[in-house]
Design a protein around this nucleic acid. Structure first.
Lengths: 234, 234
DNA sequence: ACCTGAACACCGTTCAAGT
DNA sequence: ACCTGAACACCGTTCAAGT
């Protein structure tokens, strides 16, 4: 969290709790500072809060200033996606078996996305475009070839694996990091109020169903599931 | 496609190519007609085109009329999600082994979502709320218990499986059904222009990577991967 | 019960212009 | 090179009012 709460003296521009830059000495804007601001904003208030106008305001600048740094909002989102992919710390190739290495790669992606569930879903649009994304794809395809998959099948599996890992993080219905604790309890109560005759398993699993996404097991177990799936489906 | 193109005589309201209701005899609005309109609109122009104001216009009605039928846009999207889940034709329970039945359920979900890639992703938010979604969850949890998974693990896997199937459809970067053929070729060309030293596998797989999502194999093979994964990770 | 009118606080984006 | 001002065509939503 590189949020910088500031108590403003001058009223030069509105300075919210999530203001991303200090007012006194406003250095020049850059793509990176804007992306950084967008990241903290999305983390704190969800992707919907990431707005051209809001970003401008956070930086004490006119909305139109953004258009010098980005062509349009689409390319701003692209930059957010690439920020995620750039944060993936890809493990060096080893002489371990393909499945161990594949798991390590997927885990690395997971680790980079988990801090940002609000916009992890954006990563998908740049895996085959950004350099860091292509590197992931390259390594994944290589390992799948090593596993003995024919090319077409390797492409299908690689695409699916990357999407699945992203989904593992982004599937959370709430866009924001903290699903508010309150809503979760209500959801659980709703489920347990169902007809016990028709939904016995759902009722019994209600606490797990609402909680499991925030446990460590959800990620490790389902990564295992994926890798086992690849091995078994050859 | 229940799109009704109309050659308007009167100018009573603007009638686009995707107008969802005929002008001459405007019967009453209902949640169902609005949802139907939203579905064809999303299929044709993407989810972004589904707008309170646009829906009103398509139905020759004031934007505010929507607010009698839906509390807000969120609940409109909820209705879209439930429309998807309602279309799942759940296979009857049989005495086949659990994995065969599980695959059949996942395939049924897939079949319901595939016609609507633009908003298939919405399904996630209502699986544990809508009746038809809860039925899916119930059956899935039952089969996973039958497979011998402990409750917590079953909840994790069920959540992941449902998300993954949805992702299988919704992961397409383009929101619209037809990714425009033109862009696909450009994407493929971009990839094949990469450094052959650094990205040999990506370059070789370029055609497959851009095409594989529209082939039948992408879905059947990855469904198999998931089911195999469940079996192997017990 | 079902819909309209007017208004509010937001969006993304373009174009010309300033320094 | 970097940013502003004014304007345009959109959003979702509220509130009071009409039939």
């Amino acid at each position: 969290m590189n949020v910088i709460p500031v108590a403003m003296a001058t009223g030069e521009f509105r300075c919210t709790a999530y203001s991303c830059r200090v007012a006194k000495q406003r250095q020049r804007l850059s793509r990176d500072t804007i992306v950084g601001c967008a990241v903290t904003l999305a983390d704190a208030e969800g992707l919907d809060a990431v707005t051209i106008r809001r970003l401008a305001q956070e930086n004490g600048v006119t909305p139109m200033a953004m258009y010098w740094h980005f062509n349009d909002k689409e390319s701003l989102l692209d930059a957010l996606a690439e920020h995620l992919l750039d944060n993936v710390v890809l493990p060096e190739p080893t002489d371990e078996p393909w499945d161990v290495q594949l798991r390590a790669i997927l885990a690395a992606i997971l680790a980079a996305l988990r801090p940002h569930p609000a916009f992890a879903g954006l990563a998908m649009r740049r895996v085959l475009a950004a350099e860091s994304g292509l590197l992931l794809a390259e390594r994944t395809l290589g390992l799948l070839a090593e596993a003995g998959l024919e090319p077409r099948r390797a492409a299908e599996v690689a695409t699916f694996l990357l999407c699945s890992v992203i989904t593992l993080v982004a599937s959370d219905p709430e866009g924001v990091a903290e699903p508010s604790e309150e809503k979760l309890r209500r959801k659980q109560a709703d489920m347990q109020a169902l007809s016990p005759a028709r939904y016995p398993h759902v009722i019994a699993a209600a606490p797990d169903l609402v909680e499991c996404r925030s446990g460590e097991g959800f990620f490790t177990h389902n990564l295992d599931l994926l890798v086992h799936g690849v091995r078994a489906s050859r």
